[in-house]
Amino acid sequence: MRLTASTSFLAACCALCVGLGMPDDVQAHGAQPHHAGPVRKEQKDWGIAAERRDARRTIRITMGDDMRFHPDNIEVKEGDTVRLSIRNTGKLMHELVIGTPPVLEEHAALMVKFPDMVHDEPYMAHVPPGQSGEIVWTFNRAGDFRFACLMAGHYQAGMVGDLRVSPRVASKAP
């Protein structure tokens, strides 16, 4: 049997995920809880994962089948550790993924091609209908970022929000 290029790519992605030690039961968009183990702290352009006990602020976000986040514009200061408390008020699975516009666009395109893609990152929260999830993140880099639902078709329908991390102002010496 001949494998197509996309089937080969998907097989390679699955092999990579297994090779990285990802649990077999973690599905990108299933009902399983995410981040069951210790938080993997890897520096990203938009910050780094944090522990819940370190959060000094909670921002509540709802998302629903209108393909919108409320609020859809968040501002934090560089260095802030924030708990994003995310509630899915819809009847569909939704997610909130933090990233740069190019990273989100690339991932959204992959999700259209491979809607059952396996992944679990600390900057993602997959939230079943009527449930809640959270992301705890330290925004240690200033800049303009975004958050989005990358479920196939949701990003394309405009399910995105803006995230501004303002630079920490250096204190002036007396």
Results as ranks from 00 to 15, higher is better:
80 D>P: 00
137 W>V: 02
47 G>V: 08
17 C>D: 09
57 R>N: 03
72 D>E: 13
52 R>N: 03
58 T>D: 09
3 L>S: 03
87 R>E: 13
108 A>G: 02
7 T>Y: 01
109 A>H: 11
145 F>M: 07
12 A>L: 09
97 V>I: 10
16 L>R: 06
135 I>Q: 01
164 R>M: 10
46 W>K: 14
48 I>C: 13
106 E>R: 12
66 D>K: 08
25 D>H: 14
155 Y>Q: 07
105 E>N: 12
86 I>G: 00
67 M>C: 04
171 S>F: 05
144 D>T: 05
67 M>Y: 15
172 K>M: 13
60 R>W: 01
122 P>Y: 04
166 S>W: 03
78 E>M: 12
34 H>M: 01
88 N>D: 08
86 I>S: 04
32 Q>A: 08
38 P>R: 14
122 P>E: 06
29 H>W: 10
141 R>I: 04
6 S>H: 11
129 P>D: 01
57 R>H: 08
137 W>P: 00
102 P>L: 06
44 K>Q: 15
35 H>R: 07
37 G>M: 07
128 P>C: 05
122 P>D: 05
72 D>T: 02
50 A>Y: 09
105 E>V: 05
42 E>I: 13
71 P>K: 08
112 V>S: 13
63 M>L: 15
134 E>Q: 10
127 V>Q: 04
144 D>Q: 07
18 V>T: 06
58 T>H: 04
